[in-house]
Design a protein around this nucleic acid. Structure first.
Lengths: 363, 363
DNA sequence: GCTAAGTTTTAGATCAATCTAAAAACAACC
DNA sequence: GGTTGTTTTTAGATTGATCTAAAACTTAGC
């Protein structure tokens, strides 16, 4: 009836074909078949071909579970993120998937929802499944000792985007510090003197790095105005924070945001106040998600390349699995400031004491 | 040194503790320990407690690979989506994760990028790993025979969101047909007579269902104007399509969009033309992603509840695994029209021959 | 005290691969 | 033809759990 090419008809119904069956069919031993499967150079060309024919004829399926029992690798990895519904993590997971796919690895995914308990449960499951390694965006409140524990468990662990504990550890992420400095330099060059930073929650490494960049930039450019608002990092937070800030006196002429969601919120908040983003107040986001270029106005954003970070993290994990004793690595990707319409020059009309001549040069 | 509660000190260094070791420690047989682990009622209370103490004392870790080799289940599932960077799928995966987590299942994730070849590679890997089942958002161009093949492989397969082939099959998704009808009814009640449908690509079930809803609504309300534009479904497509439509004469007074991204694009396109979304042209999206409520104006959208769909799909898969011979099920969730500001009444000023009195009732 | 029935426990086979160490096959050389 | 050295192949042990069928231990009844 069915006309497809697979040799399903030949197989006995759904009963699984084993090395033993192939050995019998090809007239060799189980060991030889195993060697063929693992592409050992020990086996003679003629034998190899004969065995491969039998493998095809019987529709053999490699049993990775059985192989893992005797061997040392499972070719599986665990991936933990805390918000898979966030497109940033989606892109990152896509990068991980692409890199692993190339190497024949496959990954379990868990969404911790920033709950250390849930994260812990998943990691214990991963241990039971004997994954070779873990890619971990640690949930908020993760005990730094966890990294050592994973090491004791014999699973390679690469932290991604955030990290807990002290180096040396394996890590892949973006240089948020540098990214914020780039944004600040750009704004200062445009003549801005009152720049606020919006958002960031509790004590994550990724937040600390941004805030440090902000503070150091202020110092470096000798700017007196400093306004750093903590918050969760949703679009609504952006609305709330910008409304609060613009009611202050003096109000900022520019804001740098923890991520693009906050930045979208800030732009929306400005519009609700009857102000024009990029004219009345410059807005810069972080991540450069796909929507950034299609905003109104198009959002200037610090591009952090989640797909690339995912790929780097996966590759680092594979390196560590291949060489568990090797030196720990930190792969920190440089961000790039993607300039668009939401960060015009500071208005001369605003109450700046001395209009900056530099503004003209760069406007 | 380290003060945590885990009995790591007792274990011999990283060598794994087996049932045999526990049996020796507790003074019982390997079989008894196995029964305790699986909570068999056969084991006497005293023995059970004794064995559980030994399990704790030795820091035993269950080896699921070994268990799967002898047993029939792996407690693993494969999940295939075609665009994990899309927040809609992110939310769906979060729903799947939540439902599986409760049942002690864990899932492999793959991002097919709508490539049947890549999807096929992943499914073969899943077979090698002997997953109990697959949650599949089939890639574009998937051969309908694939569903039967998976069945032959002995893996439960639940299609999600899209489906290929003929029923009966297991499926979880949203009632897109009904959703579009709700949107159309709403627009008609507001007085709209020229309603276009934007977006949808090639022959997916999820697209066909939307288009059918559109066409049947037109017929039901006896509307002569029909304009259905095919496209991929990105924000940019929305911009392009609305610009094209508004240049036509007569132009539509409302558009229903394949998803929220297209709708955002349509709103942006209207603004670029100097028109006001919700006033000059009503816009309705599909999915009701988080951003919908924060748009400018807030977007009316057909909420399809991706998280709930993910949960339903996962639960259905677990049911099928528990009972492979059971009747196939289709779980189709009813969408809900989330009315916001982007779909005002059709303007009396526009060239409608007869202003509809119904518009007043609902405005 | 012995048998029968019920409750607990266990030895040994099994699952499907890998690994080790040794055997078999082949070639080359004296 | 026998020895040596390679190249191939293989038997059998091993991995860590589950399963089956039987053994060992209780308890009840006469």
């Amino acid at each position: 009836m069915r006309q497809d090419a697979s040799p399903r008809q030949d197989q006995r119904d759904s009963a699984s074909v084993t090395l033993q069956d192939i050995a019998a069919h090809a007239g060799v031993s189980r060991s030889t078949v195993s060697l063929v499967l693992r592409e050992s150079p020990l086996v003679a060309e003629r034998t190899r071909l004969k065995v491969q024919r039998s493998i095809k004829a019987l529709g053999y399926v490699y049993n990775r579970g059985a192989a893992a029992l005797r061997g040392s690798r499972t070719s599986t990895l665990g991936v933990v993120v805390y918000d898979i519904a966030n497109p940033f993590f989606g892109a990152m997971v896509a990068g991980i998937d692409a890199a692993l796919n190339r190497e024949g690895y496959v990954s379990f995914l868990a969404n911790s929802e920033d709950s250390p308990a849930r994260q812990q449960r998943f990691l214990e499951r991963m241990r039971e499944h004997q994954v070779d390694g873990i890619l971990l965006c640690p949930a908020e409140g993760t005990d730094p000792a966890l990294i050592d524990t994973l090491d004791d468990w014999g699973m390679a662990c690469v932290q991604v985007l955030r990290h807990v504990g002290e180096p040396p550890f394996d890590y892949a992420g973006a240089n948020f510090h540098q990214g914020v400095c780039q944004a600040m330099n750009h704004l200062v060059a445009l003549g801005h003197r009152r720049i606020a930073f919006l958002g960031g929650h509790s004590e994550h490494s990724a937040t600390r790095e941004r805030w440090q960049g902000y503070r150091e930039s202020l110092e470096h450019h000798q700017l007196a105005y400093q306004r750093l608002l903590r918050s969760t990092v949703t679009r609504r937070d952006g609305v709330d924070m910008i409304e609060k800030l613009m009611a202050e006196s003096p109000a900022p002429t520019a804001v740098v945001c923890h991520n693009d969601l906050v930045a979208f919120g800030a732009m929306l908040g400005l519009k609700r106040l009857g102000l024009v983003p990029g004219v009345d107040c410059a807005v810069i986001g972080t991540d450069d998600v796909e929507e950034a270029s299609l905003g109104d106005p198009a959002l200037t954003s610090i591009a952090t390349h989640p797909h690339a970070i995912g790929e780097e993290a996966a590759r680092l994990a594979l390196r560590r699995i291949a060489n568990p004793a090797g030196a720990r690595e930190q792969v920190v990707l440089a961000p790039r400031l993607q300039v668009r319409d939401s960060c015009g020059a500071a208005r001369p009309a605003s109450d700046a004491a001395v209009p900056d001549p530099a503004a003209g040069e760069h406007a």
